[in-house]
């Protein structure tokens, strides 16, 4: 399938605490092609956010990446030093979060924060070498600052904020939720990243605003030819936005496929259950079928297939062996012994 932008191989991120080791992400592998939109879905605690943070190498204590490889254009991010990693963060890979209010600094104006992001990475090549040296020269510095300011205004316009010159001077609390998320996107995109990781970017927003933001992200994606990893619990959002979907459960990938594969030809019992649990619009004749039981605790996972305790198809083998992720059709992978049934 051609050149891969990002390849994650056997990634393991564990959290160490008094009560044991929580295997938040336990050996997952997937890849993202340039310009592709991949959705990672799953319920809370399935490890989707930890996966995103692992790619950015932003896992907080007591969590640790204990194994695997994260290849970005063939370079393993896990072997990089912190200094080199900072070049990737924001420069090549950007991330936006669920709650833009807590990720924006309340005491700095919005414009300052975008400019700061641009200066940190010198606009990905627009300011390089000589200009970097020139930063010691006050005049060159001023020029650079002006350049960054102009670029910030351009970014604000790009994400659909009207009167950017004026709004640049405002503080985050003066923006509405949707507008703040636009600012976050502007900050993230200011350095032309080739991969954007969006962790529940619209969960805190209202539906009409969510529609605006998704439309914006879709537009930017085609304009900038940027790959997007969209992490969400909302199957509707991935259905509309993504090319491929990764379904996670308790730290493992249970199914990968195109949007049509996952939504119309799901093979894994968990994916099927998840789809059945979503109330369909305007359909109230039958009971929604829910998945019985609850997600297992990450530090006390069941043996074998992690889903077997809640699965109606489980056999003895499911409780003993872990099913590997196997390709059943082109690009459609399932980790279930009975998945092909």
């Amino acid at each position: 399938m051609g050149e891969r932008l990002l390849m994650v191989r056997d990634l393991k991120t564990y959290f160490y605490s008094d009560i044991g080791i929580a295997k938040a992400v336990d050996g997952i592998s997937f890849s993202v092609a340039p310009g592709e939109a991949v959705g990672i879905v799953g319920e809370s605690g399935c490890g989707k956010s930890v996966t995103a943070r692992s790619i950015m190498r932003l896992v907080d204590y007591p969590g640790r990446i204990v194994g695997g490889q994260i290849l970005f254009r063939g370079e393993d991010l896990l072997t990089l030093g912190e200094q080199e990693m900072r070049r990737f963060r924001g420069g090549h890979i950007a991330m936006i979060f669920q709650d833009p209010l807590t990720t924006l600094n309340p005491v700095l104006t919005v414009g300052d924060q975008i400019v700061e992001a641009i200066n940190l990475h010198h606009g990905n090549g627009t300011l390089r070498g000589s200009e970097l040296l020139g930063s010691l020269n006050p005049f060159a510095r001023k020029r650079m600052q002006e350049k960054a300011w102009a670029r910030a205004i351009e970014m604000m316009e790009h994400v659909g904020i009207s009167v950017p010159e004026q709004r640049m001077k405002e503080y985050p609390h003066q923006f509405s939720g949707g507008m703040r998320q636009r600012v976050m996107i502007a900050v993230a995109l200011s350095c032309n990243p080739s991969l954007l990781i969006a962790d529940e970017p619209t969960t805190a927003l209202d539906v009409t605003v969510q529609a605006q933001i998704l439309e914006l992200m879709g537009q930017l994606r085609s304009d900038l030819d940027m790959a997007i990893i969209l992490i969400t619990h909302d199957l509707g959002v991935v259905a509309e936005f993504c090319d491929r979907i990764i379904v996670m459960y308790a730290g493992k990938i249970v199914e990968v496929g195109t949007v049509d594969d996952i939504l119309f030809r799901p093979k894994h019992p968990y994916t099927k259950g998840l789809l059945r649990s979503v109330p369909k619009l305007g359909d109230r004749r039958h009971r929604i079928q829910s998945i019985p039981g609850v997600v297992p605790e990450l530090h006390a996972l069941p043996t074998g297939c992690r889903f077997h305790t809640r699965c109606s198809l489980a056999t003895k083998r499911c409780a003993l062996d872990e099913p590997p992720l196997t390709e059943i059709e082109d690009g459609h992978e399932v980790s279930c012994f009975r998945g092909t049934a």
Partner: peptide, 8 residues
């Protein structure tokens, strides 16, 4: 709540 729990 999560989708599957929401349904319950």
């Amino acid at each position: 709540l999560d989708v599957s729990i929401q349904a319950q």
